[in-house]
């Protein structure tokens, strides 16, 4: 598949005068169609550094625009607007407003890493996609994605108890994403589980749901992890000038 280029001629920049006479020549209607020049003044030259400060984005400045990532990309095959090479370029050149036009598709990366294995410069395009999606969230351009919310729920539990309890994660995830707890597939799964699960396991599950057991001696480990996570978050926010 050829590398898809996005047209920079946007319909909103096409201007036509219904009545226009220039030097005595009538150029009304489509004779006067011109493309309004767009002077981009909002280059954000720090953009590359911002992405590089987020996990996965570290190697973005290596990119030499060969297009191997895009032409190997799983998502690009179904949506030609999904173009990691193009976004990497926009980021490197600081064309933030252009990047934001695609904010609603950037997160669609499925992390298959086909690009990672194709890239001759070890840019880690998959990581860059992740970092970019993360950047969009941190900057408030996109709401947190469902997978981010799931990760957060998961992490919060681990940090609190050193364990995960699936039922709780699902409940927390549904609550955060505004989904009903009683979903058909879940009810069905619970029913079948109940039919086959040994009594003892069922009991343990119920018990764990109510009492939230913790890994023994977890508090110190948990605190250390929490501190580290906060440190990293603070660093990232600082790199993005969000402090």
């Amino acid at each position: 598949m050829p590398i898809h280029e996005q047209s920079l001629i946007r319909p909103e920049n096409l201007k036509t005068h219904d009545k226009l006479v220039l030097d005595g020549v009538d150029v009304s209607g489509h004779w006067s169609t011109f493309i309004e020049p767009r002077v981009v003044t909002d280059y954000n030259e720090a953009l590359q550094e911002e992405i590089a400060a987020l996990p996965g984005g570290e190697h973005i400045h290596r990119c030499w625009q060969c297009g191997s990532c895009t032409n190997s990309c799983t998502v690009n095959a179904v949506n030609p607007d999904f173009n990691p090479r193009f976004w990497i370029y926009l980021i490197r050149m600081g064309m933030e407003s252009e990047l934001l036009r695609d904010k609603d598709i950037i997160w669609q990366c499925v992390s298959c890493n086909k690009c990672t294995y194709a890239c001759p410069r070890d840019v880690f395009p998959e990581g860059v996609m992740k970092a970019t999606a993360h950047w969009l969230e941190l900057q408030g351009h996109t709401p947190k994605s469902k997978s981010t919310l799931f990760d957060e729920e998961f992490t919060e539990q681990v940090m609190a108890t050193g364990k995960i309890e699936e039922g709780r994660i699902i409940r927390g995830f549904f609550a955060k994403t505004g989904q009903a707890l009683m979903q058909d597939w879940l009810v069905e799964m619970a029913k079948r589980l109940a039919r086959r699960l040994p009594i003892k396991l069922g009991f343990l599950m119920g018990w764990a749901t109510i009492f939230r057991p913790r890994t023994r001696g977890w508090s110190r480990a948990g605190e250390a992890i929490e501190e580290y996570v906060h440190e990293q978050q603070a660093k990232q926010r600082k790199a993005l000038s969000l402090e």
């Binding site: 280029e5 996005q6 920079l8 002077v39 981009v40 193009f86 370029y89 926009l90 050149m93 064309m95």
Partner: peptide, 10 residues
Amino acid sequence: EDTLVKRPIT
């Protein structure tokens, strides 16, 4: 012209 993004540059 920035040829990679078909953009005139100034």
